[in-house]
Amino acid sequence: MFFIKELTHTILMHPSYFGPRMLEIIEAKLHSDVQGTCTGQYGFIIAVLEIIDVGPGIVLPGNGQAEFKTRYKAIVFKPFKGEVLDGVVTNVLRAGFFVEVGPLRCFVSQQLVHPDMRFDANAAVPSFSSQDQVIEKDTKVRLKVVGTRVDQTEIFAIATIKEDHLGVID
């Protein structure tokens, strides 16, 4: 699920950046620092929307660097159990297949694939296939998250396509 969330990030500025363009530099640094990262607590930080407050910029005694405690608003993406997501298949194995939902990696076990769909190793590309559907690399699928594993810097999800309205989408 996507959220707009207020977050903070601490930026250290070398004195050589102190000057008229300092705010631009802070903004750029914030973007490059946080966008695309993942925290276990809030999920993936997709995009920084706006900077609410750069902060006072306190010069640290001893080395002259300034510390900015920046508050900003960002779009974050955190998967939840039961959530339905759309993704792209990246790898098909006998035991199931991997799907990428943006930054999130999911695994769909063969037990959570409809029994009609069988693993087909004959094909040049490994795939799960039934009469009218094929799941292979780069197929788009809709899936439902069954469980998530949240680590400090990574989120991994288990998903199913064995329910109504899930599976291959066009």
Binding site: A95, G147, R149, I158
Partner: peptide, 15 residues
């Protein structure tokens, strides 16, 4: 829990 990945059961999502 016959299929496990990343320390999670791939069928029920249990840790």
């Amino acid at each position: 829990h016959g299929t496990q990945i990343m320390g999670m059961c791939a069928d029920c999502g249990k840790d």
